[in-house]
Design a protein around this nucleic acid. Structure first.
Lengths: 346, 346
DNA sequence: ATTCGCAGCGAAAACGTTTTCGTGTTAACA
DNA sequence: TGTTAACACGAAAACGTTTTCGCTGCGAAT
């Protein structure tokens, strides 16, 4: 079990100084060709690689990006990571992941763990609990210490930083418009309580689309699910609420759900009630995950392009890291949504 | 944009030496109560946190675990990460993720990037391409340099290290036995080509279970899908091969699929052929993902407990890291599978 | 013979810690 | 008064790099 070899050891073996070895390996013209070859051969033989930690300390750069997300077992977030990792690696960066589990405390702790030198900057999506408490001091402190942050998806206006978001309003409008085009007259929305910004925005898009199509919105067609309950019987409760929705709205012929799970569950309920999809009722979801693609019938969704979001976020962060001299100015990039049509719509 | 404060700056401000500051913050008895309080107050005021990189360099430990997996957009792998992260964080470790994308080269590069000081040890699952080429030099080199590795799920016998696996053979037997119990007479398997170890093992379990139940295996009932094709029309091809399976085996009344996707697709094909699930034909999958839970009918599967695998792997690695003195000996932990019964079986 | 320039190399500082080993001051003791 | 012990603190090394600067020796130019 030989430890990794260092410059010092090479220097000792070859009876030259550490500086000479370092320069020889970097092909400095200061070193004679003789010595250079000798050193390089020796280094190659012992498979020398510069120690990253020492480099990080010296350069005060770690070439590592910290990601904080609410959970990783989630198609959208893992897509985003995948995108971040892609461009990060291409530009010589590593990626270190922290999970907040939607908890404020874990978000803070995780950020503190990473902020002390381990990384050069953050890419993050805010935990639900943080959004509720509206306590963002950990973000502003991090930024004021000179560590850039890029937020994606779940962002907040109070913090000055780069952001990558999806046009939720527009995406929702695309979905509802599609339903209208396809002849739906009574369109429901299954959404979340308002403190989740994306739920709120998608609801807004739904209302705007109805308005533009001169359809009068009805309270009974708007189902706001409390997504705080993550218990075992969450699914049951969800299903029952949706059944209720069907009961009170017999003429309902279109459903827009703000996520995959709600949409899938709606289809399940529809089937139970012997409604044919898409003939009797059409369904559109949001977020293009595995469920949408493999459900039967497969689900028409508004795709958010998670991978692209990750790529863009990484680009923004790396740009900021490598152009610190430029004057601070923050941008908010909007990734276009796309309506992916499948079998759940006509 | 004030940079993070260091010991040196505190020392200068308070007109004491760096060592004094360091000791004062660690509550050394060497330092007078007066000075201690003064230093601690100042440090608190400026929110001092020791620089992780400097600590890593000094201690030659990073308190960071490197994970290399084939892909992250995959329920099983993200579950595993989630498990690793859970116990790692609890024990003060961070987690840094590299993706191999099933490619040998990316696996090697990623490991090299991390092995030069960035991490203390690896937890990994081997890329398909690596398994095919059977080139494992990067693993043995890493290990011989004193960096411990824990492999999970896709492991290989040639390498001496801790391993966490699922009892694939046993899991497959559970599934097939269940089908037999439920009255199935003609049971097919949809599996992968043999170089994927898990596919091979699950096939073996299938055969063993048949044998134990005195059922004669038939070649036409064994469908080996080539999972190298990851193209757009992958799903189409898969579907057609499964249709073929149905055609040639009219009496087939049970299907065991080695993953979720194959199982879901089998159910889709069954529905097309107007076979009722589970009345005409029963289906069991492997890996407990989102698809299984939310499919209609929901899918009976052999759950692998990805989270537990991750937790166990992290425990093994951290133990090895913190007990380097103990004599080397490697264990292979087997995580029990569990048959989760849902609607696709009687 | 003196100066100059240059090639080739080494010493040392710096990044931010922790820790070992002094060192000076004061109080207590014989 | 001289010795010792306790106390409070600082200097320096070490982790592994990179880089600046200085030094040495030698051939060429004056």
């Amino acid at each position: 079990m030989k430890r990794k070899i260092t410059l010092k050891q090479i220097a000792r073996e070859l009876d030259v100084s550490i500086s000479t070895v370092s320069k020889a390996l970097r092909n400095s013209k200061e070193i004679s060709e003789d010595t250079r070859e000798k050193v390089q051969a020796f280094a190659k033989l012992y498979n020398y690689r510069p120690n990253n930690i020492a480099l990080s300390l010296k350069n005060r750069k770690t070439k590592t990006i910290g990601i904080i997300i609410p959970e990783i077992v989630h198609h959208f977030f893992s897509k985003v990571i995948s995108g971040i990792e892609l461009v990060a690696n291409k530009r010589g960066y590593n990626v270190i992941v922290g999970l907040s589990n939607e908890s404020f405390d874990k978000e803070v702790i995780n950020m503190e763990m990473l902020a002390n030198g381990s990384i050069d900057g953050f890419i993050l999506s805010i935990a639900k609990q943080t959004l509720q408490q509206q306590d963002y001091h950990h973000f502003s402190e991090t930024i004021s210490q000179g560590m850039p942050i890029v937020m994606f998806d779940r962002v907040v206006n109070d913090i000055q930083c780069d952001k990558v978001i999806v046009d939720d309003v527009q995406g929702a409008k695309k979905a509802v418009n599609k339903l209208v085009e396809n002849g739906c007259k009574t369109i429901a929305i299954i959404t979340t309580k308002d403190y989740v910004s994306v739920g709120k925005l998608r609801t807004q898009g739904y209302l705007e689309a109805l308005d533009e199509n001169k359809i009068h919105p009805e309270a009974s067609l708007i189902l706001k699910v409390d997504d705080k309950l993550v218990s075992e019987d969450y699914l049951d409760i969800l299903e029952r609420e949706i059944e209720q929705l069907f009961q009170t709205n017999k003429k309902m012929d279109g459903i827009f759900a703000v996520n995959e799970l709600y949409a899938i569950t709606a289809m399940k309920v529809a089937r139970k009630q012997n409604k044919k999809i898409p003939d009797d009722i059409q369904v559109i979801g949001f977020t293009d995950g595995v469920l949408s693609k493999h459900a039967t019938p497969s689900l028409t969704t508004v795709s958010q392009h998670g991978q692209k979001i990750g790529e863009k976020a990484a680009e923004l962060l790396i740009h900021k890291l490598e152009h610190e001299d430029e004057e601070e100015q923050f941008q908010t990039v909007i990734i276009e949504t796309e309506l992916v049509e499948r079998e759940s719509t006509k």
